[in-house]
Amino acid sequence: MCICRSDPSGRLSFEGKLVIHATGVDFSSGQSFAINMDQLELYEDLGKGNYGTVKRVLHKPTKVLMAMKEIRLELEQSKLNAILMELDILHRAVAPEIVEFYGAFFIESCVYFCMEFMDAGSMDKLQAGGVPEEVLARILASMCRGLKFLKDELQIMHRDVKPTNVLVNRKGQIKLCDFGVSGQLEKSLARTNIGCQSYMAPERIKGESVGSLGAYTVSSDIWSVGLTAIEMGIGQYPYPPETYSNVFAQLTAIVHGPPPELPEERFSANARDWVDRCLEKIPERRATYAELLEHPWMIEDQSRDVDMPAWVAFAITQRDVKNTQGGDQSLQRPQAEDPPVDVA
């Protein structure tokens, strides 16, 4: 367990790990990221992530737009550990499929993270009507490469894979974000069930329902990839509408019902097989990231010319039209983030 100390000088010290202060963050590795509030011009709110709100800001010295997450501190060890985990991952996770980290600083009771601004937003707002198969394959390939990088290089599971945490920019790049609930791999197991229940694998839900620690493997994230794939492909959460606002019905459907599938009339046999391999109910039978990336559907994607910027521009237009007309995409996806219930 990490020990954190806050002192009157405006420093938040994670013993042996890093120190966050008003002008930046210093890691024990010797690497520093210097940035502060005086350098930033604040714009609109972008939304909420784990433990905090996110705002668009301009870094005035460099003219770079950034996404700044504000976390109001309640000095509880669990929250401080989550802050440390996310900062640690952000500064080590340098990969094309992971949001770039610019710096962090601490003022009074708040920690601020500055990260790459993905100007098209998150996939939960860009999937109205469903994503075309070729675009879907390109998005999922990026996701799997990013998740495989976290597992292989940093020994980390994301543990909160869902469309909200898949970001897009107008260049058509796809990047993962929000690692505040990520877990270090411990002999390939993590022993806490954190994350969004709507995308939890059956074994995670069953573990919670009997009050166990819910040990699970990396394959639990792969289940979440499969559900995310279907939601993006059809434009709505894959389980029936009656489960959206009823957590008991939702979790029961995940544990006891058949896994959802991509519709045969809209998607190829290879696409459907790829998703089916993610949504095996028995964890040991699920594909690995390496197997998913070597699947014929992903091989096809490598040989295709997909105009991702054009699709992003179209998706943004569709989103803006829907917002202007008062459409509510939240009606197409689960509302509840309730505590676990017994579905055994």
Rank of each mutant, 00 (worst) to 15 (best):
S245K: 12
N246M: 01
A269D: 12
K281E: 09
R272Y: 11
T252A: 06
F267R: 08
F267S: 08
V225N: 03
L213N: 11
Y244F: 13
G211S: 09
C278A: 13
V225W: 03
G233H: 05
G257I: 04
I254T: 13
E242R: 09
A269H: 10
G226K: 04
P238S: 02
S219R: 15
L227H: 04
L213P: 00
V218L: 14
E261M: 11
F248L: 12
P259W: 04
P238L: 04
A229T: 10
S220N: 13
I230V: 12
Y244S: 05
P259T: 02
F267Y: 15
N270Y: 12
P263M: 02
P263D: 03
Y237C: 01
T243K: 01
R266V: 00
V255G: 08
V218D: 10
N270T: 14
K281Q: 13
G257E: 08
Y216N: 10
M232F: 04
A271V: 08
E284G: 15
P258F: 02
E261R: 15
K281H: 11
V247F: 09
I254R: 07
D273H: 14
Y244I: 03
P258H: 11
L262R: 06
C278T: 05
V275A: 12
L213F: 12
A269I: 05
I230L: 09
E284Q: 15
P240D: 03
K281R: 14
R285K: 15
E265T: 08
I230Q: 06
P258I: 01
T228Y: 06
A271L: 14
L279E: 05
G257M: 06
E261H: 12
I230A: 09
L262C: 09
D273M: 09
L227Y: 04
A271G: 15
E242V: 05
G257L: 04
P238W: 03
P260S: 03
N270L: 15
E264V: 13
A249G: 01
I282T: 14
F267K: 07
L227R: 00
V275Y: 10
P241Q: 09
G233T: 02
R286A: 08
I230S: 08
P258C: 05
K281I: 06
V247N: 06
T228W: 02
W274A: 01
T228M: 07
A229L: 00
A229F: 02
E242Q: 12
Y216T: 03
I222H: 07
E242Y: 12
Y216G: 06
R277C: 09
E231C: 01
D276Q: 14
E261G: 04
D221H: 08
S212P: 00
T252Q: 04
S219Q: 15
E280F: 07
A271M: 15
W274C: 02
A229I: 00
W274M: 06
K281L: 10
F267P: 06
G233F: 09
T252S: 13
S245C: 09
Y244Q: 04
R286C: 10
P240T: 02
G235Q: 03
G235A: 03
R286V: 03
A215H: 11
A271P: 05
S212N: 03
W274N: 01
E280V: 13
W223T: 06
N270S: 14
D221E: 11
T243N: 02
D273A: 12
Q236K: 13
N270E: 15
P241R: 10
E284L: 12
V225D: 02
V218Q: 14
I230W: 08
Q236N: 07
F248V: 07
